[in-house]
Design a protein around this nucleic acid. Structure first.
Lengths: 196, 196
DNA sequence: AATTGCATGTAAGGGGTTACATGATTCT
DNA sequence: AGAATCATGTAACCCCTTACATGCAATT
């Protein structure tokens, strides 16, 4: 696992460090609470769970799995082991690799010209809608988290991460508003050319 | 190319739409002007150039390549064709796919707890330094661009893209300052526990 | 003459998504 | 009983980076 550059294993360890979970539950958590800065697919999660179990970093929970009357036999809950916790802590110390983001929207904007103002306006509006929706979703989560701060042991860290998202979304909204105005102006001038 | 989901081809078309370039020059441009929102490697650029040429979307420049006395034989300049321009314009119209960003820093923060405040502080500081450097680099580019707005045909669009970067970096700086303060406070309290 | 940088290219291999297959459980 | 959802898993396939190989050009 040390030679591997994939971070999937650490995501699983990180989540299992808080509570015992099945692969399915992990996927759900990633798709909600981590979705704005991370993603994992089933095709990564399930094989990685097996790999971690084979390496002794996690183990299958043998306790009665039928919690709350559902998922009697099929679900496989995993729990983190001592060496798993150790590996996780070691990884936290390693330097963060430079992130490589890719904004297709910016690519299109960069390559476009005044002949496609209307199309770009649509793209930016779509971008604005998507991120506003995401921001509102997390706004609820944040409010809920602030009410019961003792549920998650590391609530202060989660708030830091959420704060990152909020600042990001604010700047998105800011930029969208500004850019939409510019594009609308371009379109207006094209329809009604200023006399020169 | 239509069935392909890679955007490398469009990046090449987009850049060649402004000026004739070699693969090496394309790489340099991506690594500087597009670096904060896109990346491409030689392993993608060169094969894709051949594919585009085979598909008739770009063509090898047959003119005397020896520009400014250097790169006489080896360099292969490409130029975009009419159908290449058409393909590019068609792509600009297609909806932007949802971007998937991955911030390893946030992952580590999310999984950390108060026992690793010092490590996280380091990570955030590193993040701050990297992005401040990038911001300053693009600040120069922006100033330079605003002085001669007629060099690039689509300068207004480039300014929009740069503005996105600036807003992003501002929010990074904002968040870093705030988060560093919180982490320093945590550390101080650990060294000097408040009486309860 | 040798080193450094420019320039093009390829092969290997890992990372990751997508699609599909399968079965259990719950709901209507 | 049938449909929807939960849950696990696999195989194919693409995207992309990395490492290497090669040769030309310019510099010392």
């Amino acid at each position: 696992m040390a030679a591997n550059r994939s971070k999937t294993g650490y995501v699983l360890l990180g989540l299992l460090n808080e509570e015992n979970l099945t692969g399915y539950e992990i996927k759900k958590i990633v798709d909600t609470r981590l979705s704005f800065f991370w993603s994992e697919s089933f095709g990564q999660i399930y094989p990685e769970l097996k790999r971690l179990a084979a390496g002794g970093l996690i183990a299958v929970c043998e306790e009665p799995v039928s919690v709350e009357g559902k998922n009697s036999k099929q679900s496989i809950k995993y729990q983190i082991t001592a060496s798993g916790r150790y590996e996780l802590q070691e990884w936290l110390k390693t330097p963060v690799e430079k992130e490589t983001v890719r904004y297709e929207l910016l690519l299109k904007l960069y390559f476009s010209n005044s002949s496609s103002s209307a199309t770009m306006l649509e793209h930016v509006r779509e971008f604005e809608i998507n991120h506003r929706r995401q921001q509102q979703l997390f706004g609820k989560f944040e409010a809920q988290l602030k009410q019961n701060l003792d549920v998650h042991s590391n609530h202060s860290r989660i708030l830091m991460v959420l704060s990152f998202g909020q600042k990001l979304w604010e700047s998105y909204a800011d930029w969208c508003g500004q850019t939409i105005a510019l594009l609308e102006q371009e379109i207006a001038e094209q329809e009604n050319p200023p006399n020169e």
